[in-house]
Design a protein around this nucleic acid. Structure first.
Lengths: 261, 261
DNA sequence: CAGTGGTCTAGACCACTGG
DNA sequence: CAGTGGTCTAGACCACTGC
């Protein structure tokens, strides 16, 4: 016996809760979009649980299976974490064991946990104005206010990474070197907890370069030592760029590891 | 009314077709495993279609939904490609528009298609014995027969990549420089068509290095030019390593692009 | 024990492809 | 038009969590 089923394209229930859906897309995609909006709006904070599948199904007037498929995709995008028997939680950089969300530099020995946590030295933390090169990837206009941070990460006492960060001034008002130092290591966790900015995705461009004098001195290496330059743009929800980061990695004892599928 | 449903853990139908399933796993995982075995065994060749979901469901005595979930995972792993209205096809490096399956080097201009196809020059193609460094990642013993290939890839006439390949001798008997040259560009397609070896996955280790004299000469660059060293191990089904490749990339006009989720 | 996500089924209908 | 994958539903039961 067929259920009293409305057409799969019927988005009446969705429209009922007040959202326009101009083009066709499967119901579960629309549900995914709605949940995404709630995530962006901060209806559920990182680390908290979202409503159960049954709740959401009732709320959106669809079957549990449809909600499930929507959440499955959000989980695949790392926006949400499912835990059997407990619920579905908004992904977070804090509290989790995901210390280095985007860092792919690994000691050549392979034992990435043995070298222990990184020591971080903040060299500089100042408010400046964006140059054209910095403004473009951050979707700002040159001259806009940006926060610039320069720091060194050391592993086992050896300076290994020299990093420059640029952050949009409007989103990170009041960021201080003290804050950067407090959260030893968990920079993205700090962005979340202190500024409500959750990074979701990143793109990196890698090149091999030679350091200038200042860079060589800071990393305590001879000039002419080839370094891996990693330029990263990190995005929040909505593909909004929120961080530009340029790292210089020593690769004599470490390497950048990547998996291809 | 409940269906005449056997327990979810009942693998009778699976056992019926003659396979042991020692530990517990969801039915769809077991089905995935069975399909995987057929792929490895070559029951369906790359580019061909596999049986329809209904067929497989009948064959394994499970519902279409269960087969679907199994195939969904295989599709997510890039082992299989679904095409609505046509069927599900074994993924292939040939015929597809996926010219460079694993190459992540991109011109800085971003317009990766404008520079046209790479010109390939084979410098060397010989049979040797594996050194310890080569044997380990290929899961061979040092001294085992390996094929070694050295070649240069040029973009727009500029030598950009110097590559050394090592292939297990037993799987690539009779590989010649002519074969390498014939398939301009589509090396992995050749492996598939000529040797029945389909690469499924790869791992890369990146470092910044300086070239030695020979390397600098071959790439027509001054010494002291920093290069990106990319060491890749490519795997077939079953996590069997089948290729070790070491590339030296010029990164003055190109960069290695990576996306992080 | 109740509540959560995870698996499985059966059946209906939609969207796309090709003869 | 028949056959394929894609969506959606409804309902049952399993596995895990925590009270």
């Amino acid at each position: 016996m067929p259920p009293p089923n409305t057409s799969p394209n019927d988005v009446a229930a969705v429209d009922d809760i007040g959202l326009a859906t101009p083009a066709f897309s499967p119901l579960y995609q629309q549900i995914k979009g709605l949940i995404l909006q709630s995530l962006q709006a901060g209806d559920w904070k990182p680390g908290e649980s979202i409503p159960s599948e049954m709740d959401l199904a009732a709320r959106y007037r669809v079957s549990q299976g449809t909600v499930r498929k929507a959440i499955d995709e959000l989980a695949a995008d790392n926006l949400v974490v499912r835990r059997q028997g407990k619920g579905t939680f908004v992904a977070t950089h804090a509290e989790q064991h995901v210390q280095y969300r985007f860092l792919k530099l690994i000691p050549d020995t392979g034992d990435s946990s043995a070298e222990g946590p990184a020591q971080r030295t903040i060299i500089e933390c100042k408010r400046t104005r964006a140059s054209a090169e910095v403004a473009r990837p951050l979707a700002l206009r040159s001259g806009d206010s940006v926060l610039q941070v320069r720091r060194i990460l050391s592993f086992g006492g050896t300076p290994t990474i020299l990093e420059d960060l640029w952050l949009p001034g409007h989103a990170f008002k009041g960021l201080t070197a003290e804050q950067m130092a407090q959260y030893h290591g968990a920079t993205y966790a700090m962005f979340e907890l202190e500024f409500g900015v959750r990074m979701v995705r990143a793109e990196e461009k890698l090149k091999a370069v030679l350091p200038d004098e200042t860079q060589a001195r800071l990393l305590q290496i001879p000039p002419q030592t080839p370094l891996l330059s990693v330029e990263r743009v990190a995005y929040t929800y909505n593909d909004t760029p929120m961080e530009l980061r340029r790292g210089l990695y020593r690769t004599d004892t470490h390497h950048y590891r990547n998996e291809l599928n």
